[in-house]
Nucleic acid binder design. Structure first.
Lengths: 157, 157
DNA sequence: AAGTTGGTTCTTTTGATTCAGAACCAAAAG
DNA sequence: CTTTTGGTTCTGAATCAAAAGAACCAACTT
């Protein structure tokens, strides 16, 4: 069992509220938050379960989906049967990119809608075309922004 | 009651699935999709209710939150008691900006976490600093991207 | 003033998520 | 081969969000 300072508990609370609002299940959110604030960066299944005071089943399913979604990485140390779990901070960038791309993929549907609409409603259709153009613009610009970040990072080494 | 062609029904289906995945309640999603595909761009409360085959209460609350969130605009025609509802395509841009800013606001919490962490775990802390830097970078770049788009639009007129 | 229209608000019902508890299982240790 | 460890999987049970239904209300009509 990990001992947490009061501030750490507080942040777990605030952070998980934030993530739950964004659609993440509570247990997953609390595990992620714990892995961010804990003094040890690698925790075992049981440390997580005890510290968060949650059932084995809840922790097991939550951890598995977190690993599946590349939010958490699971580490095995040779000669130790336990698995250790660690926040995948390194993937934050890539996850963000994936998330944005998924959002922008709505453009496919908007184009379909434009294809199906009456030609009568010219103003509306023009507005729709504009949204489509905006999303396409964002796609191009965001790729450049990500590229720029990656270049900056490489130059720092 | 609005008559919809099969393709229109299909798109309402696909579009609302997409939005529901992104966290929007089903009725709201279907109303938005209907307002995008319908041949008439302005529909009354009852046209929406009948076409989507939903209860008055569900339509009422959904419409009200959509109006509150600037996703739908409500129009009144003088001498007609009914309200007409229209998709706020013009606000797509601004809504996108708000949504992104909300996502990026997690940075506040990440900074708090960094302040509370042990100094022992240097690698982890460096990764965390990197995420924070990345989000700050995105904030700056995104503002510029939005600005660039707005300038382009002004020049077109 | 007695409907009718165009909704809103409150309560109940339904359905889906989430979690706990227990049974279960595979790998390693004894 | 039996036991322990480190989890997983399978029911319920509790909770929660969304929708339905019904009562309600204000504005307009007749």
């Amino acid at each position: 069992m990990i001992e947490l300072r009061p501030e750490q508990h507080e942040i777990i609370q605030k952070m998980s509220v934030f993530q739950v609002r964004a659609g993440m299940p509570p247990t997953e959110a609390r595990i992620l938050a714990l892995l961010l604030v804990s003094d040890q960066t690698e925790l075992t299944f049981d440390e997580i379960r005890e510290t968060l005071n949650t059932s084995k089943s809840a922790v097991s399913t939550a951890l598995n989906t977190l690993v599946l979604r590349n939010k958490v990485e699971s580490i095995t140390i040779p000669g130790d049967r336990k698995r250790y779990f660690k926040h995948q901070l390194k993937n934050w960038n890539a996850n963000a990119k994936d998330g944005l791309e998924k959002l922008l993929s709505v453009n496919q549907l908007l184009k379909e809608i434009l294809g199906v609409r009456t030609k009568e409603t010219e103003d509306f259709n023009q507005d729709l075309k504009n949204v489509i153009a905006f999303i396409e613009f964002m796609q191009v610009e965001l790729t450049q922004v990500f590229q720029k970040w990656n270049e900056q990072q490489e130059n720092k080494q």
